[in-house]
């Protein structure tokens, strides 16, 4: 009787669960497009994904998406026709691998200020396409070390060095990313390691939970708050290694097209906040500019400033 009474008391608080039908918009597999940088020998400043002028080879990986209700791992997609061209120019075809979905076009030189078109097709999949451009490089005017700070251990803040980075925005809708690397002084393209950075500057749009600014591989920002102006952004670099004479510190400013900016910043946010799953956090969307597919094509140019 006592148990029955307890059950009756608990009745209002018992939640019921049922399985419901779900038919998402993208139930059928789609082609997923990912620009990569596996084999180019021109630079080592790994970071955001996208095509850029320092490459002498265009590289791309195609894979397939799977239904959200499927359990498994999406597979690479071989046997596809992949083409690219400068807008209005002639199409050039990638050479593909049937196994790992890896396609290359070499030699191929992207140029700043140019727009490109991309398309891919494969049997049993809808053909996909996308447009992108390589923005004209914006140069860093100055990089200065301001101070070395001991972080607040109460909130788990690391020690950091604070740099001020200046550059001039040319105006129009522009997108940037900023990263910090330790390089060899003699060969600035030889990256020893990449540092995580953050910034409390409103211009930098660093990931934050409101109280704490997270250290990440790159800061992604648009110029909505400094369009057409010279801007000075203070960044915090998580305490670098003790300086060694033969090493230098490099700040890399990338000018991204809208697609590279949106994809890279959204994937960073997704990776950082864990995507969905937390009912008490906002969902994170990953960008795509692929018609009838997923992934992205986009471009950037970069400027490297040694400290």
């Amino acid at each position: 009787m006592k148990k029955l009474a307890l059950l009756a008391l608990a009745l209002p608080f018992i939640a019921c669960e049922t399985t419901i039908d779900f038919e998402g918009e993208l139930a059928d597999p789609q082609i997923v497009v990912s620009p990569v940088d596996y084999n180019s020998s021109s630079e080592d400043y790994y970071g955001p994904y996208g095509f850029h002028p320092d490459l002498d080879t265009a590289e791309i990986v195609l894979s397939t998406s799977i239904n959200i209700l499927d359990v498994g791992y999406p597979e690479p997609l071989g046997d596809a026709s992949v083409q690219i061209r400068e807008r209005g120019g002639a199409w050039r075809s990638f050479v593909g691998s049937n196994v790992d979905g890896y396609y290359t076009l070499s030699p191929f030189q992207f140029e700043e200020g140019k727009s490109y078109e991309f398309k891919a097709s494969r049997t049993n999949y809808e053909s996909v396409s996308g447009d992108f451009s390589i923005p004209v490089k914006v140069e860093v005017d100055d990089v200065r070390l301001i101070r070395k700070v001991e972080g607040d251990t109460m909130i788990g803040e690391p020690n950091y060095w604070e740099y001020e980075v200046e550059f001039t925005d040319p105006g129009g809708a522009r997108y940037y990313s900023m990263s910090a690397y330790l390089v060899t002084t003699q060969f600035p393209h030889e990256v020893i390691s990449r540092y995580v950075i953050t910034s409390t500057s409103p211009f930098a749009q660093a990931l934050s939970d409101g109280d704490y600014y997270y250290y990440t591989d790159a800061l992604y920002m648009n110029n909505s708050l400094f369009e057409g102006r010279k801007v000075s952004i203070t960044i915090r670099v998580q305490q670098p290694l003790v300086p060694i004479p033969s090493y230098s510190f490099a700040i890399v400013l990338r000018s991204l097209d809208e697609h590279a900016y949106k994809y890279n910043s959204s994937i960073q946010r997704y990776n950082f906040f864990g995507g969905g799953g937390d009912p008490f956090s906002q969902p994170v969307q990953v960008y795509t500019n692929i018609q009838n597919g997923l992934g992205f094509v986009g471009g950037y140019s970069l400027d490297i400033e040694l400290d």
């Binding site: 998402g24 993208l26 139930a27 997923v32 990569v36 791992y73 994937i267 969905g276 969307q285 990953v286």
Partner: peptide, 16 residues
Amino acid sequence: TAQFVDVNTGQLIEYV
């Protein structure tokens, strides 16, 4: 509505 892999990190992305 779909899942795909970010090939650069290998992470499985749930696409919204």
